[in-house]
Design a protein around this nucleic acid. Structure first.
Lengths: 68, 68
DNA sequence: TAAAAAAGTAATATATACTTGACAATATGT
DNA sequence: ACATATTGTCAAGTATATATTACTTTTTTA
């Protein structure tokens, strides 16, 4: 999977650390790290929680034209 | 989780069976069934594959204002 | 430039997404 | 009414998303 730089940017825009975002959406800091790094294929529920917290849509943060 | 009726409708709009959609996105028929029934919290990668196949966006098929 | 905070990394453990196979229940068509 | 396709359901297995702990490296700030 590709790195999620859009997520990283949206988090920066809200001036939140990985740990703060993790706490806000109820997962571990390492989970946020892994998603930004592209190591995890997160569940839609977690994606929605991240979008709500960062004020973005699923399409803005998690759409990709092609997978892999 | 809530039933995904938007997915069911989008699939009907393309005249695809659960089995056909499953084959198109590379999962089992039971997985599509479970997602429509709201039993599974699918991964974002599978959501994207479903959206591409049905010609819909993530926001159209998988957004929910509140989870649970 | 030193201290503190944040990010990166790695190993082991657990919950759950997803598979496979098989059968019952509904719908659709002749 | 019958045949067939589709959907619903269940049980047992596998793969992987996520947790936890702990440590190192990088970035920020005083």
């Amino acid at each position: 999977m590709a790195k999620n730089l859009k997520l990283k940017a949206a988090r920066a825009e809200k001036d939140m650390t990985q740990g703060e975002l993790a706490a806000a959406v109820g997962v571990s800091r390492q989970t946020i790290h892994a998603i930004e790094k592209g190591e995890y294929n997160p569940t839609i529920r977690l994606c929605r929680a991240i979008c709500r917290t960062l004020g973005k849509t699923l399409d803005e943060l998690f759409w990709e034209e092609e997978d892999e």
